[in-house]
């Protein structure tokens, strides 16, 4: 495939299809120079901050109906479908107006775009809560805080994990868009610059790097965490 790419690039003008060597150069600039690394780090920060914020918010919204049963339709029938169908770009555009161009806009819009993914996964977990276990906890204790810490929270762990995993996959794509439109740093910003300068090699390098980053983090972080999670369930004493 690399060879096909190489020869195709020879035949086409570089602004349409840059050769693998040129893209490799750009990739090296991204990961081996302070200036390049600065943008990579900025994107990682945007993704991490937005994931954390949307997780906290989503957790709160998803657990609200558990303690306030009257809020079920409010959450499942109004709030979640609305944030889920509202276009992501719209949030970015509004954030630019409200917060100006910069980190705030990127983190804010990515947070809201990720929110429905978090809520949908965590709601699934809340719905799957075992009523019998809750009653068991109630028979031993009248403390809601302890029942939450010892029963509800551990029951939700697998769902928190899948919420994080799903949002992680989405977060890179939408962070790129948000940075491109409303950021001053990050890989999306670099793409915007490259777009204006018709630097197609740079665009290729950024896309390649993102594919590699997502793959690596999925493998190193999420797959490892999942193995530990499953081990803990079945028991180490096998």
């Amino acid at each position: 495939m690399l060879i096909v790419w190489f020869f195709a690039a020879q035949a086409l003008p570089p602004y349409q299809l840059p050769g693998p060597i040129k893209v490799g150069d750009k990739l090296a600039w991204l990961v081996a120079t302070p200036a390049g690394l600065w943008h990579v780090a900025a994107s990682i920060f945007h993704v991490a901050a937005a994931m954390l914020a949307s997780f906290v918010l989503g957790f709160f919204v998803a657990l609200l109906p558990l303690y306030l049963p009257v809020a079920v339709i409010m959450v499942d029938g109004r709030f979640t479908p609305f944030v889920n169908s509202f276009p992501g770009i719209g949030w970015t555009m509004l954030a630019i107006v409200w917060l100006g161009i910069g980190t705030n806009t990127v983190v804010f819009s990515v947070t809201i775009i990720l929110l429905p993914f978090m809520i949908i996964n965590l709601r699934e977990g809340v719905r799957a809560l075992d009523r019998e276990l809750m009653e068991m906890a109630g028979s031993f204790s009248r403390s809601r805080a302890r029942a939450f810490r010892l029963i509800i929270l551990p029951s939700l762990f697998p769902f928190m994990f899948s919420a994080m995993r799903v949002s992680f996959g989405v977060s890179w794509k939408v962070t790129l868009t948000a940075e491109l439109l409303g950021g001053t740093t990050g890989l999306g910003y670099l793409m915007n610059v490259a777009r204006q300068e018709l630097d197609t090699a740079q665009i290729f390098a950024v896309m390649l790097l993102i594919v590699l980053l997502v793959y690596a983090i999925n493998r190193l972080l999420f797959d490892t965490a999942q193995r530990h999670l499953q081990l803990g369930r079945v028991g180490a004493a096998s």
Partner: peptide, 9 residues
Amino acid sequence: ALPSVGWAI
């Protein structure tokens, strides 16, 4: 893995 903005550009 490829993001939509990348394709768009």
